[in-house]
Design a protein around this nucleic acid. Sequence first.
DNA 1: TTTTAAAAGCGTTATTATAACACTTATTAA
DNA 2: TTAATAAGTGTTATAATAACGCTTTTAAAA
Lengths: 264, 264
Amino acid sequence: MDRVLYWSFQIAGHEDSGLVEKRYKNSHIFMKNHYEEHDRILVALDCIIFGFDRSGLKLLLIKRDFEPEKGNWSLMGGFLKREESLDEAADRILHKLTGLKNVYLEQLYGFGEVDRDPVERTVSIAYYALINIQEHDKELMDKYGARWFPINELPDLIFDHPQMVEAAKSRLQYRASHEPVGFELLPEKFTMPELQILYEAIYETELDKRNFRRRILSMDVLVKTDEKQKKYSKKGAYFYKFNEEKYRAKINNGDNLVFKPIKL
Amino acid sequence: MDRVLYWSFQIAGHEDSGLVEKRYKNSHIFMKNHYEEHDRILVALDCIIFGFDRSGLKLLLIKRDFEPEKGNWSLMGGFLKREESLDEAADRILHKLTGLKNVYLEQLYGFGEVDRDPVERTVSIAYYALINIQEHDKELMDKYGARWFPINELPDLIFDHPQMVEAAKSRLQYRASHEPVGFELLPEKFTMPELQILYEAIYETELDKRNFRRRILSMDVLVKTDEKQKKYSKKGAYFYKFNEEKYRAKINNGDNLVFKPIKL
DNA sequence: TTTTAAAAGCGTTATTATAACACTTATTAA
DNA sequence: TTAATAAGTGTTATAATAACGCTTTTAAAA
C-alpha cells in the first residue's frame, strides 16, 4: 500500500507542476476549476505494422513481456508521455521496435472501451505503419521477441488488438485505392508480378494481369529498368522503379491520379 | 496552492482505488510497476455537428463559457470520464447540447499536439455527428449559446478546432460516397431538389439534375409520396421517403449499393 | 383572363472506363 | 531438343458516366 501511495503523490506532483507552468495568459481560479475536476487517464499507442514479401502481406507482432497477458502475442505499443504529441509517440514506439525513422505511419482509430485493458482504464490510439520488410533491424526484433506473421495466419492477440488489425486492414484497402502504397511496402526495385501480388493481398482478391499492368502503367509513374529479377521464373521479370517526382508533379497538377487497379 | 494539493490527493485516491479493484488475475508487483510509471492525461472529446437546411450545410457551434478563450466560438466538447467509453462520452456530450439520443455519431480522429490546449496537456478525440436540424432542443441550445453557422461562413474557432472541422468535412464526403447520409441529415420527407442541394453542399460541386435523379432512383431505396412541397416553387416538388428496410435488405444481399452520385 | 416567371421533371446520345478473354515469348533444367 | 514455368502482350464487349435542352406545372403579375 505504501508503494501505491508514494506513486500517487508523484503523479499529483507532475500534474500540478504542469498546470502551474502552463498557466494561461487570462488564467484565473474558475478556469483552473474547470480543468481540475476531470479524470486523467492513461493514453496508450499501438502500432499495426504491415510488411510485404512475395508470399503476401505480413504483420509484425511481439511477445508481450509484462503482465497481464505476459508471453502472449500483441501489437507493439507504449504509453503517451506528457511532453510528446500522439504522432511523436507513435514514431518513438515504432522506432524502438524496428530501428526505422521516417516510416509511413498514420493514425487509425482511438479505442476506448472501459474494460479494454483489465489493469487500468486506458485509451489506446492505434496507428498503422507500412514498412519495407528488408530494412528493419533484426537485433531489435530479437530483443522484443518479434515475428512476422502472414496476415491470414495471425495468432490470438491480446485485448482488442484483433479489432485494431481489422480496422487497419480496411484502412489499408482504402489508402491503396487512393494512393500508391506499394512504394512504402516494396523495395526500391520491384517487378510487376510482385506489385500485383501486393495489391491482390491488400484487396484479398485475384486480378487480371493484363488489366492490372495496363492500369498501373497508364498512370505513368513507373520507370522500367533493364535489369531482370530471375529468382522466380526462368524468363525473368523486369524490375521497375517508382518515379516519385513525376508522381508529386501529377498530384500537384491536380491530376486525379487514383492508384486503384480494381473497384472495391 | 492548498487547492491544488487537495485536488491532487483526490485524483491519486481515484487512480488507486481503480487499480486495486481491477487488479488482474495474474497480477503481481511487476505489472503494477509497468503501468504506474506512465503519465495520466486529460482526454477530451469534441463534436463536429452537421446539420442541413435548404440553404446548405451547417455546423453547430457554442460560445465557450470558461477560460481560456471564454466567449469565443468552439466545438461542443467535454472530458472523458474514467467509467465511460469514448463512444459513450461523445454521446453524452452531444446529448447535453442537442437533447438528442441515437444520433449518427462517428469517431473522426485523435488530436494530440502537445500545446493544443494551452492550460494543460489534453488529447482530444473528435467525433462528428449528423443531425436533423429540425429535431433538436432549442432551449438547450440557448443554454449553451449555440448557433448554426453555414459551413462556409464559420467564425474563428479556438485551438485546433478548425483542423477538426476540415477533417470532418472530408470524412463526410467519404461517407456520402459509400452510404446514404441524406437520411440522417434530412427530415423524414424530402424532395429531390433538396437531396441534390445536400450532395452539392457535401461535395462542394454542382451536379446535373437529370443524372443525379437517375442515379439516386436507380438504387431503388426511395419511395415517392403523392404529397408535394410547394414552399420553394410554383409547380411544387414531390416528397420522397427513404425505404430503410429495402436499403438494409440490399446491403445484406451483398448488393454493392454505393450512394455516390458523382466521382470525387 | 392571359401572360410571365421560376423551378420541377423528364430521355437520348456520346464518351470513357471497366471487364473478359488466350496465345506467344524467354529461359532454364531435364 | 524438348518440356516446363512464369512473363509478357491486344482486342472486343459491356457498363458506367457525362453532356445536353425542352416541356410541365402553377402562382403571381399584368
